[in-house]
């Protein structure tokens, strides 16, 4: 008789699809209930507690920031902040991807470019980006460019080095093979190497997004007129935990969706890239 597999415990566990979904939801439900209970307890002791606002307070704040126009600015705050922040994030990370791809490809393939660039990029990547934020603000202004530059400088060295490693990992045989098929040097780059590292680029950008968000929020917190990070640090002065919680949840949700979208994009467009992966 075959041994029965446990549904949850152990190396050979085989949870049913329903149970899998339940398991995935469970930590969220737990977190939420702990919060609700804790906030309830605190409000019993002090009805004006600001630290853990009740769900109804949070939904009121949501109404105010996400659905109604702000009286002073005439816009819906959550939307205008999101728009401003995503614009910076998008420009910064796009520039970093393009520069990282071009540098990484060149350094990976051309010995000349490798000698020229590798130690320099490695050096740059060791500068703590936040430490040079004042320099960036002084040089590029506290407006858009300074923030975009922080995101760019904070992410492009890592993308460059990762693309470089991906190019170096392509077996020499593969490149010689392309040459024996009549490829020119440009042919090797554009038909053989470039398409093989594109999915890796998407993956690297996906993992760099976490750092990009960090730099975005840090720079907005320090000097800005709008943006998600700006708002969080602004309302902190009034101890508006309800607004902060809404913004944090919204940022987390956005980041999660970007991650998911990029992951799906790789799985769908480049099925050869990760043939075994199921997540």
């Amino acid at each position: 008789m075959p041994k029965k597999r446990s549904i949850f415990l152990g190396l050979h566990a085989d949870p049913s699809p329903g149970l899998r979904l339940l398991l995935a939801i469970l930590p969220f439900v737990l977190l939420l209930s702990v919060y609700v209970v804790a906030s309830e307890i605190r409000h019993k002791a002090n009805p004006h507690d600001k630290l853990l606002p009740t769900i109804s307070k949070i939904s009121k704040a949501f109404q105010k920031t996400a659905l109604e126009k702000n009286k002073r600015s005439g816009t819906i705050l959550l939307w205008s902040d999101t728009k401003a922040s995503l614009k910076r994030l998008f420009i910064g990370i796009s520039a970093a991807s393009v520069v990282g791809l071009v540098l990484g490809l060149n350094m990976g393939l051309l010995p000349g470019a490798r000698n020229l660039g590798l130690s320099f990029v490695t050096f740059i990547s060791n500068i703590p980006p936040l430490a040079i934020l004042p320099i960036l603000f002084i040089t590029f202004g506290v407006d858009q460019l300074g923030k975009i530059m922080l995101i760019f400088l904070g992410t492009f060295p890592l993308i460059t080095r990762d693309i470089y490693l991906a190019v170096r990992k392509i077996p020499r045989e593969n490149i010689v093979k392309a040459l024996t098929l009549g490829a020119s040097q440009a042919g090797v780059i554009y038909r053989v190497v470039y398409p093989q590292v594109i999915p890796r680029l998407v993956d690297t950008v996906r993992l760099s997004l976490g750092a990009a968000w960090l730099f975005l929020i840090a720079s907005e917190a320090i000097a800005s007129q709008d943006g998600l990070g700006y708002r969080i640090f602004l309302v902190r002065r009034y101890l508006s935990m309800d607004v902060i919680i809404i913004y944090v949840a919204w940022i987390t949700g956005l980041a999660f969706c970007f991650d998911l979208a990029l992951r799906k994009c790789v799985a769908f467009r480049y099925p050869w890239y990760n043939p075994k992966a199921d997540n």
Partner: peptide, 28 residues
């Protein structure tokens, strides 16, 4: 340098993983 007058088949890594079989053959 390597060129189209000398073809090569290695034990591994002769194929381009990002191309379908047909495109692999067409690539040359």
């Amino acid at each position: 340098f390597p060129g189209p007058d000398r073809g090569i088949v290695y034990q591994r890594y002769s194929l381009f993983p990002h191309l379908s079989i047909l495109d692999n053959i067409l690539l040359g």
